[in-house]
């Protein structure tokens, strides 16, 4: 049982670390500000989520896990707010996104 949780937490922490590194690489590789926002949202969701899951598996059902999950939830709620504030400020700061505007929006909602 101990071995099983150890293996599971190894897998989740390694996968989470992979997504964190991917976020860093994307932050460097992607060509402009608005595309870099996407790279940052990767470690903010799955990267943190998987690492926290691995740590929770290591800690077991204790107060430590509660705190970890609280940190995760807090970041899950504040991350989009910060990203949205950044994007909106950049848009108001006359930063042109490197993108093709899509005009033909077929309304799919009733």
């Amino acid at each position: 049982m101990q071995l099983l949780t150890d293996i599971l937490s190894w897998i989740t922490i390694l996968t989470g670390s992979f997504f964190v590194v991917t976020g860093g690489v994307g932050l460097l590789r992607l060509p402009d500000f608005f595309t870099r926002l996407h790279a940052v949202s990767m470690p903010d969701t799955l990267g943190i989520g998987l690492i926290v899951l691995g740590l929770v598996l290591q800690a077991g059902f204790t107060q430590t896990s509660t705190k970890l999950i609280m940190i995760f939830l807090f970041m899950l709620f504040t991350g989009p707010a910060a990203t949205h504030a950044l994007a909106k400020a950049a848009l108001h700061g006359k930063l042109k996104p490197l993108a093709s505007e899509k005009k033909d929006q077929e309304e799919s909602s009733p």
Binding site: F18, F19, T22, V25, G26, R29, L30, P31, D32, F34, T35, H38, A39, M42, T45, L46, P97, L98, A99, S100, E101, K102, Q105, E107, S109
Partner: peptide, 27 residues
């Protein structure tokens, strides 16, 4: 989130960086 994470990660590591940034308005 898991699906799109994998998709974006694949695109970031892809040597040719296959992205096509688009702006769209949704109701």
């Amino acid at each position: 989130i898991v699906k799109s994470n994998i998709d974006v990660a694949r695109r970031v590591w892809h040597p040719k960086l296959p992205i096509s940034p688009t702006i769209v308005k949704v109701p």
